[in-house]
């Protein structure tokens, strides 16, 4: 394959390291950006520079924002005594997309993992315990993955918070899901979490 100038090759190399992109798709993206220089390339470069300089983790909850304390933590209307625990920022954004939860969040930064040697001290659990006392939290909602590691983390956190109501998200049939296509683990979980109508 013909090689472009080094700067362009560097850009292709960097883009190809992003999730969902490989060398070919990165090459296509770079060609597109160069063709649409004014509409896409320059604004993208500017936006990336700005985000590179300003993006930081919220000191309180671990969300990503441009301020030390993110807007969710600053919003007094959200200080309703509920904290939703999520694994990472993508989960927080997913919860926010639903618009249902009106409390605050806490991003752990992962889950406990025996095999990867991730312990409580590697996550933001000590900060969570501080917040529960300092923010007069009445309910902690565990929105962690329905995986062995996710649920191990959930039980560990529940053990650390004996004086607070700790709840977790339900597990079962997804909206629009058909039983025939579900794995037996999901059906078991759904049957165990059944409720009366």
């Amino acid at each position: 394959m013909a090689q472009g100038p080094q700067d362009i090759e560097d850009l292709i190399g960097l883009l190809s390291k992003l999730p969902g992109l490989g060398p070919r798709s990165a090459r296509r993206a770079v060609l597109h950006l160069i063709k649409k220089r004014k509409q896409h390339l320059i604004p993208l470069a500017d936006a990336m520079t700005r985000v590179g300089q300003s993006a930081k983790e919220c000191l309180n909850c671990g969300n990503i924002d441009t301020a030390d304390i993110c807007p969710i933590c600053q919003d007094e209307r959200r200080a309703n005594g509920e904290i939703c625990i999520v694994e990472d920022v993508a989960d927080l954004w997913a919860m926010e997309r639903s618009g249902v939860f009106k409390g605050r969040y806490h991003v752990l930064g992962g889950t406990l993992s025996a095999l990867d040697a991730v312990g409580p001290e590697d996550l933001r659990i000590p900060k969570l315990l501080d917040r529960v006392t300092s923010e007069a939290v009445t309910e902690v909602i565990l929105a962690l993955s329905a995986t062995i590691d996710g649920q191990t983390t959930a039980h560990y956190i529940a053990d650390q918070l004996p004086d607070v109501t700790v709840t977790s998200l339900a597990q079962g049939v997804p909206v629009g899901g058909e039983l025939d296509y579900l794995d037996d683990g999901t059906i078991t979980a759904a049957l165990r979490a059944r409720r009366s109508l």
Partner: peptide, 21 residues
């Protein structure tokens, strides 16, 4: 699958984790 049976059971979950690790 055994994961669905153990998800809500603290002892079973920690047991599975210990055995596998």
């Amino acid at each position: 699958s055994r994961s669905a049976q153990v998800m809500s059971d603290r002892l079973a979950l920690s047991g599975l984790g210990a055995v596998c690790a």
